[in-house]
Design a protein around this nucleic acid. Structure first.
Lengths: 109, 109
DNA sequence: TTCTATGCATAGACGTTCTATGCTATGGGC
DNA sequence: GCCCATAGCATAGAACGTCTATGCATAGAA
């Protein structure tokens, strides 16, 4: 039972945007990057990842194109749009605000 | 559209447990406390609150009894059980771990 | 007496994440 | 030549948590 998520709900889009802000990347690579940078704490399942990427495309926060990876495989590379970069800023500050608020509640002994 | 939640999904139970760890309280009071301590950033809607309280009861993390408030109203007071106190510890450390992991991903420029 | 604040509770909609599934293809080892 | 692990995309459906909307009740102030 007790199915604790490998991800904090609501933060996935932000994490993807941040990852893409470093460099264009394909889905698989994004998942790897998040897992690696978080020291294996955050795991992005494919069933979460691809719907999230669709959302980003739909919102105009990223665009996609098929290319070849360094290892000679075809993959869909996602690039952040200016709107996406702006959105990243918004989500980062909202996140910070949320965390700060939660800490205020938690620290009040 | 764009329906940003007033609450970070997955953190509500932790916030309630923490609030009850200070003193037994009724639902309405819990919502007030969280809102006040967070400087109005976190708003707990009733449709989120009461289902959450049911979860806590069901898990044995809190128990409830009807009492009168200071203002002479009948209300259901929730008290943390030992298991609930333990659970609070678990959720706090999981939360910290999550936040730390997210920060690692975000800070990696 | 009417209104506001206090107080509990549920049903249904909605969005996100997870599980499960299916498909393709590359490169290494046997 | 064949198998298998890895890389890679994608969707359907279940599960879950939160929000909107609704209903009910009562104390005290205006």
């Amino acid at each position: 039972m007790a199915n604790k998520p490998e991800l904090m709900p609501g933060t996935l889009d932000m994490l993807i945007l941040k990852t893409l802000a470093r460099a264009p990347l394909h889905g698989y690579g994004i998942a790897q990057a998040i897992k690696r940078l978080s020291d294996d704490v955050l795991t992005v399942e494919e069933g979460s990842l691809y719907p999230a990427l669709q959302r980003l495309l739909l919102q105009g926060w990223a665009k996609a194109e098929w290319r070849m990876t360094e290892t000679n495989r075809r993959a869909r590379f996602y690039t952040l749009t200016p709107a996406g970069r702006k959105q990243l800023g918004v989500e980062l500050s909202e996140f910070d605000q949320m965390i700060a608020a939660i800490h205020r509640v938690l620290q009040n002994a």
